[in-house]
């Protein structure tokens, strides 16, 4: 009976001694945030070493990879905690990633401990599963998704806010300056330059040409060129016929199309035909023909001037329009069918 009690006591002592010895040994451990991750994702690899505070140790140095395929993105600081039972706990968190799918082994991490650093404490190896995104081959291929815009920070916005404020201030200053300056200037209402009616312009130009006496100075070609230029410009301004860019034949056709009276069509045709002969066929008209062209041009302009203008000018006595001419210029004209031939 006594022997049994002695055995129990010895066994208990042995257990206590064994546990105490075990507690004094360096213990290395590691853990993963998860052992299954999406390709390219980042997970934490947590390392821990516990050992008596007086025991020397050497923490491993990590480069940018854990193995050939497992990359270390970030190395956390080594954190040391003194525990109540006289032990020391050292922690470090490594952020790791893998860029290919498959199963990867995270090898044990070794810590050298002891006075001669000859005692090795190792963590357990881990198996890491890296999976990829499932591809649905039944769907059409889509373009690469663009970069996701990061939310704007105040630091980024600040220079722009400053710029807008500056522009607004400058604008306000300019506006204020302009208003102040405008107030100082006397208000002057400029009378808009009255637009000369086409017939007025043409009659003035014809009068100028008549006074230049070109054909009397034997400048017959120049005289007829100028004369037709005035008539063409008048047709352009008065009826919108692009006569300066038209040939005589085209001008006559256009004049016929706007239903000008027969008399005016005949006048226009004679002016243009005579001018063409002078300009292109070395024709020398007799003096009567030169003055007749001028008279025909003047009559043509007067006859085809707007009816209201005619009336007004007649009442003012500023023109020598006849009643007949006004009547002829009125829109109740008949088409000269023979001209179309």
């Amino acid at each position: 009976m006594m022997n049994e009690n002695i055995n129990k006591i010895l066994l208990s002592l042995l257990l206590v001694i064994t546990m105490t010895t075990q507690a004094q040994q360096p213990v290395a451990s590691a853990s993963l945030d998860t052992n299954s991750m999406l390709i390219g994702d980042q997970i934490g690899f947590n390392l821990q070493l516990q050992l008596p505070q007086t025991t020397p140790f050497r923490w491993p140095v990590f480069t940018d990879t854990l193995t050939a395929d497992i990359e270390i993105i970030h190395r956390g600081t080594i954190d040391t905690t003194r525990m109540a039972n006289g032990m020391l706990r050292i922690d470090q968190k490594l952020t790791i990633t893998v860029f290919d799918s498959g199963y990867y082994v995270i090898p044990p991490v070794s810590f050298a401990t002891g006075a001669a650093l000859d005692t090795i404490a190792e963590t357990e190896p881990f198996l890491l599963n890296v999976f990829t995104v499932a591809v649905d081959t039944t769907q059409a291929i889509k373009p690469i998704k663009g970069p996701i815009a990061a939310p704007l920070t105040f630091a980024e916005l600040f220079p722009w806010i400053l710029l807008i404020v500056a522009v607004l201030l400058i604008g306000a200053a300019l506006f204020y300056y302009y208003k102040k300056r405008k107030k100082k200037q006397p208000v002057v209402f400029a009378r808009p330059k009255p637009k000369i009616p086409p017939h007025r312009w043409a009659l003035d130009e014809l009068e100028k040409l008549r006074n230049e006496k070109l054909w009397q100075k034997n400048l017959i070609k120049l005289y007829h060129s100028r004369l037709t230029e005035i008539v063409r410009q008048y047709l352009d301004d008065r009826f919108g016929i692009m006569a300066p860019e038209m040939t005589s034949q085209e001008i006559m056709q256009a004049a016929y199309d706007i239903n000008l009276p027969d008399k005016n069509l005949r006048e226009l045709q004679q002016i243009l035909e005579l001018a063409d002969l002078v300009k292109f066929a070395k024709y020398t008209p007799i003096p009567g023909e030169n003055s007749q062209s001028m008279q025909q041009a003047t009559d043509f302009v007067k006859d085809t001037a707007p009816a209201s203008e005619n009336k007004t000018e007649k009442m003012n006595g500023s023109n020598e329009y006849t009643k007949e001419a006004i009547a002829e210029a009125a829109p109740t004209v008949t088409r000269n069918e023979s001209y179309a031939q």
């Binding site: 066929a281 070395k282 024709y283 020398t284």
Partner: peptide, 8 residues
Amino acid sequence: MIETSIRE
């Protein structure tokens, strides 16, 4: 009067 050359 058209010049003689043109008439010719």
